[in-house]
Simulated scan of single mutants.
Amino acid sequence: MENSFDNNKVAVAQLSAAERVAFYKKTYAHVAGGVLLFFLFEFMFLQSASIVNFAVSMTQGYKWLLLLGGFMLITNYAESTALKTTDKNMQYLAYATYIFAEAFIFIPLIYIAIETTNSTALIQQAAIVTLGLFAGISSIVFITKKDFSFLRSILSIGFFIVIALIIAGTLFGFNLGLWFSVGMCVLAAGSILYQTSNLVHEYTNEEYIPAALGLFASLMLLFWYVLQILMSRD
């Protein structure tokens, strides 16, 4: 990842220990804020039967591919905007837009999880497991101080394979199954390592919003597949 520098930007690795801690706190506060906004959006969506029915209908056949394509376009817009602009308002708008899109694409999964158990128990369990894994994986970077930027090419190849499998599964009507979800959890764990490594080694002191966006995206990917694994038990 290439970062442009100006007089106000200093690489996090070059900051004092106190300044680095302040940057990390600011970044993770924005991740936590993103999670809260995600669940607020999700709660609002689930109050509307028409929105839920529309979102569920988009999981059928080629519509699911269209939904995923739209989500990837929004993801690309949000990430590029958050990184390229120095306008904090635009960065927040990009982050909020991404969270909104994430909440929408989660509607069918959250709805089915609630309907299956007639409660939010599965969602709560998945949230606890996800946060525990996220904290544990992130701590590896801070403890070891290693640079995991080498994972970028591995993750890129992995995500291309995943996209191909999802397209094939949709077009030919086969279920990717439990082991696909397990594999995606491994991929999400790698993404968390990579994004946390960027937080330590690549970002500048002014880039806490794009840093939070990257971590939030990896967190939600892990949450999606942890929830799917828990749902597969029933």
Rank of each mutant, 00 (worst) to 15 (best):
G183N: 05
T116I: 14
Y24F: 15
S50H: 10
T196V: 12
I105Q: 08
L165E: 08
S119Y: 10
F172D: 00
I112H: 12
G69E: 03
E102G: 03
K63R: 13
D234Q: 13
V200E: 05
T86A: 12
W224G: 01
L176S: 05
F148Y: 10
V35P: 05
A101I: 09
Y28F: 15
L215S: 05
I166S: 00
F134Q: 03
F134N: 07
V10T: 15
R20S: 09
K145T: 09
L73F: 13
Q60T: 14
G177V: 01
V141P: 03
A113G: 06
S191K: 10
A121N: 12
V182G: 01
N8E: 15
M220F: 12
K88D: 12
A164W: 06
L122W: 06
A103N: 03
C185R: 01
K26H: 10
A113M: 07
L187G: 09
A82S: 08
Y92V: 12
A17E: 15
P108S: 04
Q195T: 14
I99G: 05
H201W: 14
E19S: 10
A17T: 14
P108R: 00
Y203E: 05
I167W: 08
E19A: 14
L176W: 06
S232V: 09
I105W: 06
L199I: 09
A127D: 08
I161S: 02
G33V: 05
L165D: 04
K146I: 13
A164I: 06
S156T: 15
S138M: 15
Y92R: 07
A96T: 11
D6E: 02
I229E: 04
I143W: 14
Q228F: 08
F180A: 03
M58V: 11
I110E: 02
G70M: 06
I112T: 15
L109G: 09
Y77K: 00
E115Y: 11
L151V: 02
F71V: 10
T196E: 06
S138H: 02
L187C: 03
G33P: 07
G183L: 03
S80Y: 13
F71T: 01
F54A: 01
T144I: 11
G132I: 12
P210S: 06
A121V: 15
R233N: 10
K88S: 14
Y203W: 15
M220E: 02
N76R: 14
L36E: 02
I163K: 01
K88T: 15
I128E: 04
T97W: 13
I128G: 06
Y194M: 05
A113V: 11
L133D: 01
L213W: 04
S80T: 15
L73D: 07
L40T: 12
L68H: 10
I167R: 00
K88N: 11
L187E: 01
F5M: 13
L93P: 03
E79Q: 13
L230R: 00
I128K: 09
K84G: 10
S4N: 14
A94Y: 06
F148K: 03
L222V: 07
S48N: 11
F172A: 11
L65P: 00
S57W: 02
L193K: 02
I114N: 09
L165H: 04
C185F: 12
Y208K: 04
E206I: 12
T116F: 11
I128L: 05
Y98R: 08
T170Q: 02
I112M: 13
A188E: 03
